[in-house]
């Protein structure tokens, strides 16, 4: 499996650390309800098919990436920098 890092190009999966579903980049406000925090921390859509997940290019450019990937055949379709998706990286 190779991941097309926007900075480094196609790189081997071994260079990346997998975090989980990309929903993790949308952190609820500290005041949000217990249900919202539980959903954010624990519950997952867990799709069989196309998903977006968060990877860290730890042996490369140290970027956080949202990777669009198919969980049924491991096809990697796209990778986007989190800083680009979220503006200034906040």
């Amino acid at each position: 499996m190779r991941i097309p890092c926007p900075t480094c190009g196609d790189r081997d999966r071994r260079e990346f650390y997998y975090v989980g579903d990309a929903q993790i980049i949308n952190r609820p406000s500290p005041e949000a309800s217990e249900d919202i925090w539980n959903d954010y921390l624990h519950n997952r859509d867990n799709p069989a098919g196309v998903t977006k997940d968060l990877w860290y290019h730890e042996n490369g450019c140290n970027s956080w990436l949202v990777v669009t990937r198919n969980t049924t055949n491991h096809e990697v379709q796209h990778a986007e920098l989190v800083t680009k998706l979220k503006g200034d990286g906040s």
Partner: peptide, 18 residues
């Protein structure tokens, strides 16, 4: 491994990643 899909049929999300 398919728990997430079955739960979705009942409108639930589970604390599970396959």
């Amino acid at each position: 491994g398919r728990s997430g899909q079955l739960a979705a049929m009942a409108g639930m999300r589970l604390p599970i990643e396959s």
